Simulated assay, not measured.
Amino acid sequence: MTRFDPETLTYNDQGLLPVIAQDHASGEVLMLAWMNADAVAQTLETRKVTYWSRSRQAFWIKGESSGHTQTLIDLRVDCDRDCLLAVVEQVGPACHTNRRSCLYTSVEDGTERELMKPES
């Protein structure tokens, strides 16, 4: 085993890498967001999934304001070290639209189809 160092990941020119969040129980892909090295380190330290908000230029702990939290179960590094998979325990919807997943629109034969409604 090798000691993990977030600095060994390959970040883009903004110092970020994409992170896919997946529900640990169902395997459902919930969302894609971004982390910098500090967000990766903070996530590993606290087990509360922490992203980097590109629009606010600030850390964003998932569920901090909504209560729809993500607790880290496992963090996986892809083969090129330029993408992460966060296997999480999701409480409540993952999407800011109040849907379970941010990936709720299917494109079939050039037509968009909504796969799920917002949770009530």
Rank of each mutant, 00 (worst) to 15 (best):
T111H: 15
S65E: 14
D80C: 10
A94L: 04
D13S: 13
I20N: 05
T10N: 14
C79M: 07
T105G: 07
M1E: 14
T50L: 05
I20G: 04
A25S: 08
A21T: 07
A39C: 14
M35G: 02
S120G: 12
R76K: 15
G67T: 00
C83V: 01
L85A: 08
V88L: 11
V107I: 15
Y11A: 04
L16Q: 03
H24D: 11
C102E: 10
E7L: 14
T71G: 08
E108S: 13
W34N: 13
L16Y: 03
N12Y: 02
Q90I: 05
T2F: 12
T2W: 08
D109Q: 15
A41E: 13
L16K: 01
P93D: 04
R54C: 10
G92Q: 02
Y51C: 09
L103Q: 11
K117R: 14
N12R: 11
R100P: 02
T69H: 10
I20D: 04
E45P: 04
I20Y: 08
L32E: 13
Q90P: 01
L17S: 03
Q90H: 07
D5F: 12
D109P: 09
E108Y: 12
L85T: 13
T2G: 14
V19N: 00
R113M: 06
L30V: 02
R113L: 11
